[in-house]
Design a protein around this nucleic acid. Sequence first.
DNA 1: CGGTATCCGTTGGGATACTG
DNA 2: CAGTATCCCAACGGATACCG
Lengths: 123, 123
Amino acid sequence: MVTKGRSEDADLRRADSLAREIFSDVANKWALLIIETLGERTLRFSELRKEIEGISHKMLTQNLRMLERNGLVERSAHATVPPRVEYTLTEPGQGLRATVDGMCDWTHRYFGRIEAARHRFDA
Amino acid sequence: MVTKGRSEDADLRRADSLAREIFSDVANKWALLIIETLGERTLRFSELRKEIEGISHKMLTQNLRMLERNGLVERSAHATVPPRVEYTLTEPGQGLRATVDGMCDWTHRYFGRIEAARHRFDA
DNA sequence: CGGTATCCGTTGGGATACTG
DNA sequence: CAGTATCCCAACGGATACCG
């Protein structure tokens, strides 16, 4: 049973490090902004780029690839001319979106207090 | 009214960019892990460092300073030998914590599906 | 239009050492 | 113990160019 105990511990450590990995992937501003923006509706690459102010071509593709790998967005390419590629949130993606909505609400609720805190701190 | 309209637009743009700034501060893994860890109870600097696996001295101070500036954590230093510095979530910090809890729940709920999606993608 | 690759400056972030 | 400063390498991220 000692052996079984050890392997269970090892499983837990693997699960923890994987959970941390997922968390690290997802807990960055571009990924969360993409999730939030896609929540409203399916969007094309170029539409996403317009909606998310300040994101570069490179960051958008990079983060979309990462979100696709984790199964949070689904990519569907239409072989037309010009090409048309659409991105949609999957169910796990929608789940995450709900919590990101919470973060956005939080930002707006505490907006004033945070601004005030900054001025106090900077003085 | 044209002038008033313009200044209202300017106000909105300032508010938007400030909201984005707050979002960017907060939407990074170390900040969110600190918020989550502090949610449970007040902790000392060294305790935080132990609880948050893999965070360096530098990243911890840097993020704590940022969270303090935004009024999400409160720092209280006790002038003893050795020094004792404690960090607590403020009310805005607790508000954010609630949404981070949601992210952690989400991670555990979709853990298996994400792992599977990764294997599919990597193949 | 969307994706990939390259270049290159900027920032992130660890290690270390020193102060109160 | 907590914080600051310095050094230094790696990763981030923008600009550009080129392919399907």
